[in-house]
Design a protein around this nucleic acid. Sequence first.
DNA 1: GCCCGGTCATGCCGGTACGGCATGAAGGGA
DNA 2: TCCCTTCATGCCGTACCGGCATGACCGGGC
Lengths: 336, 336
Amino acid sequence: MSELRRLRYFLAVAEERNFTRAAERLHIAQPALSRQVRELERELGVELLVRTTHKVEPTEAGRMLLERGPALLEAADSLWRGVRAFADGRMGSVSLGYGMSAGYETAPQLLLAMGEEAPGIEVSARVMAFADIIDSVAAGTLDVGLVRSAQPEALPDDVELTLLRRERQGIVISSEHPLAADDAESIDPAALDGLKLLLHPRTHNPGHYDEIMEICARAGARPEVLYRGLDFDASYTPVASGAAVTMVGYSGRIGLPSGLLWLPVTPAAFIEVHLVTRRENRSPAVGRLLRVADETSRQHNWLTGALEESVAGVRNRRALGLDGVDIGAIDGAYEV
Amino acid sequence: MSELRRLRYFLAVAEERNFTRAAERLHIAQPALSRQVRELERELGVELLVRTTHKVEPTEAGRMLLERGPALLEAADSLWRGVRAFADGRMGSVSLGYGMSAGYETAPQLLLAMGEEAPGIEVSARVMAFADIIDSVAAGTLDVGLVRSAQPEALPDDVELTLLRRERQGIVISSEHPLAADDAESIDPAALDGLKLLLHPRTHNPGHYDEIMEICARAGARPEVLYRGLDFDASYTPVASGAAVTMVGYSGRIGLPSGLLWLPVTPAAFIEVHLVTRRENRSPAVGRLLRVADETSRQHNWLTGALEESVAGVRNRRALGLDGVDIGAIDGAYEV
DNA sequence: GCCCGGTCATGCCGGTACGGCATGAAGGGA
DNA sequence: TCCCTTCATGCCGTACCGGCATGACCGGGC
């Protein structure tokens, strides 16, 4: 039932075969060491060292302790090291929830960065509806959420927002559409007036709905809203036919069906993407993810949006800027 | 660098998922436990348990500790148990030295008993001259000696004697010798007067030499002493030829060349066999051997000598009482 | 809605263990 | 023989640890 300190002390003496030198190594005074070793012997009920004034020799029992002791200390250290790996966020697991819109670029980039920066953290990611993300984070069943147009005032007190990205908005439109004339590189939202605009129902994410409408309203446009489901690809049909357009962020340009264009809104309009966490559930792994997210954001200029300021319309895959990003390789990194 | 107590405390709480019950199990008060676990978390720099007033749940780091911790405690306990095995003499090693005379029965029986009673103790036994045994024990290079006719007053102060056996003396004599008439079952030492008596040189073990001569002198006999070497078998030649006789203990009856008899001296004469140890070198293993020797001595009535009092002459192997003792099986137990 | 029971945390206090300093005892070497 | 090295012992202050009393919080029952 003895503790490890005594064992460490004994091992130092047994290895040095000298109390004085061992005491120096242990940074304690020699008498203290002498007493601790003696106390260990008393506890175990056996003489461990044969001391003469000029020699210290281990007994049989001492030799056994000398052989097996270091392994025990190493096992203990290994355990402490393992726990500390959780402490500083090298180890752990995080659940991440995000909407379809973040699934094209923002989430994959974050997961990629986590895989590189914190390979010991297992990130289980899944696509969720906006309200589910907020509720799950608030309930503690989800560690981190990734949402568009979060409104701080509409959130529970104990959830916290971290701005991850300011994403330029653009119009997804058929290349056959009159607004997508050959040399058109952007669209003035004023041009949306009277057009059919495909959006998620307002109840899905009221803040986001309102922000989109505000962008139109600022330009004096009053589009006719059509509602679509959460599945982007399937609901692009009305857009492909030229019957409607929709507004998505810069990252939405990825994965567009052929025949569809993404043209930035001008003057530039931005929508914010936030990480949502619970104030209490600040596990080291979550903290680590937040740091990695911050770094990723800076690396891609997600906050300054400088790159996106000057972005032009996207008319083909090469122009999408996807050459440097292998989306396929990222797919396996998260669950859908 | 933490010690094991905190780990034990944490494990109790993590297993019980309840501080109060864990405190009872550990026989400490709940506040003390609460503080110790908190202190462990502070040391490791990570939250191990999520506490609410009605639930205690381990975090990821806590689960790791909960999984790997018990193995560490077990490893520590195993180490302490191993050392304690040395402490109480279940484990260890002892060197044993004895003269040829003890090699026929006394030492083998002792080694046999050690193998049964203390299988964890490795006994390295070897045959040595009397003076070497005493010197080696005194010098600390031999743990235990086994000698005949030790004289306490002639020994160094720091060696100690333990009486192991009182062994009836007898005469080894050719079956053709006049003193070994068909029905002779013993020999009066008076009959040795004038006979050639084969003995080790007095310098080899003065006490023993003197005791043998005293046995003769008490009966008024003055034999003519011939000196022989330490090797019993080879030096029996003059006895086999009938030219001489010799005197050995009861155990010397074993291994007699054919044609030789062992006839007890009557009135019975005894010589003492002692264990020799050094007062300081009382390792647990030596202590254990002494206890086993004591038990063996009692089991075989080596001290009372009741059996040997009534022993008759030995004329064949069956009569030697060897049926219950497989000398061959003992041989491997000690080095010669 | 309020009270009650159960649970964990905190404040305070006393004892013990631990480490430091000074000193003693023992033994080998010049 | 003296001295130096080394380990042991005595004494003391501090820090840790555990106990007791009490507070804070929360869920459940009336």
